[in-house]
Design a protein around this nucleic acid. Sequence first.
DNA 1: TGCTGGGATATGGTCAGACAAATAGCAGGT
DNA 2: ACCTGCTATTTGTCTGACCATATCCCAGCA
Lengths: 237, 237
Amino acid sequence: MQMNDLQADKVSFRDVKAEILKRITDRRWGPGALLPGEVDLAAEFQVARATVNRAMRELTEEGILERRRKAGTRVRSSPLRAARFEIPLVRAEIEATGADYGYRLLTRGVAVAPVEMTRRLSLPEGGRLLHLTCLHLANGLPYQHEERWINLAAQPAAESEDFSQSGPNEWLIHAVPFSEVEISFLATAAAGGVAQALGMAKGEPVFTVERTTWWQGQAITHVRLSFARGHRMTTRY
Amino acid sequence: MQMNDLQADKVSFRDVKAEILKRITDRRWGPGALLPGEVDLAAEFQVARATVNRAMRELTEEGILERRRKAGTRVRSSPLRAARFEIPLVRAEIEATGADYGYRLLTRGVAVAPVEMTRRLSLPEGGRLLHLTCLHLANGLPYQHEERWINLAAQPAAESEDFSQSGPNEWLIHAVPFSEVEISFLATAAAGGVAQALGMAKGEPVFTVERTTWWQGQAITHVRLSFARGHRMTTRY
DNA sequence: TGCTGGGATATGGTCAGACAAATAGCAGGT
DNA sequence: ACCTGCTATTTGTCTGACCATATCCCAGCA
């Protein structure tokens, strides 16, 4: 009678998932253990194999199981802790907390790409970049400092935008809807401009996100986001 | 003849996904646009509706599409940048780079939970915690400093482990296979102990990960991981 | 004008059957 | 002892049919 819940009329892949997960946390199927095959589980749970398959496939995506054809399905021996962070537009992030969003353009200029940037964006030497720094505020307080480089060869239209009213990210989303992205999280020491904008001391630790974006193999933009003191990025699962 | 590739004998949900994505980056379906229904697309691509469904479902999970019953499927107007980080055991992380893994236990002691910890782990006051600090090395160089608190009420067996040869995370994985987890990324200033262990100056910025783990509603452990200078956590998609 | 109920419709999910692809493990040869 | 090729097994995916569920939208009513 241990499985009353699964005897009910409606059994979905969610129920199967839950039951499998229960048996794992139970230690009935310990780390590294070999699970019964899809056919057996389908028979036990009285569902179609496709249903068991979906349950197991999702558990695999979540890093709980490991599957290999012919070898079967095993509980991962050292669980993969996969953290998923959703990174919305700053504006949305701030407004989601109920705060008022504010934006200020700090500097704007066109420059020949510095060596570091040509490497990062794999640009030809002498490529022209639009360089912007701006500040995003929550309830009037500095929230995030943004230093952005836009490849003018890829997005010439950016040169005629003045970005004084709204940030370059909002413009870019409409110009280049989806793309290949590399994101890094790191800790940096606040440099002069960043420290001043965020009201921090020079050298203070800053939580920093760097993002580079390509579209069809061409580098579009690189941005470095520096968050105000005490910022943390959190996820739960 | 624009769709030769889709006329081939084998069409999988991957092909459908790719084609949809292509039309989005193409701007044929711009941000916010309403896509044809599953039935229509299934007819166009000559596949079963379930195949189109899987393609669209995965694109939804990846933050590209938005779906609502009856309302249909739309391209997200402001794309959700979801970054997924896989956080393996330090040992595996280091060995994956080809480096030799080293481990040192720095301190070990049992203490009554400090106020901050009782709050974080929602413990009763006066709860006993095992407090450990240790260092993980790559090719003999400091890689990560670990400060860990283990709830002895939940894991009494931890008290008799000495953790001098291998880290508490490896032990914990076998003691508590899967669990609820909260992870934060932040930047901190290196405190005395951390700075010394990692060979950094006091106050230098440190990329820090904090993780709290529960099992069946009970707090198991809280850990603060401080990485050596220059560490960054990167993902690409 | 504003509210309410119902029907049409799009996605969500299940099922049974079929075939494809990978590969563990065995058998047989050298 | 080692290699090589076969085969049975397991997961991966597709199909077409079906029912479930959410909800937009409109008609009807107050």
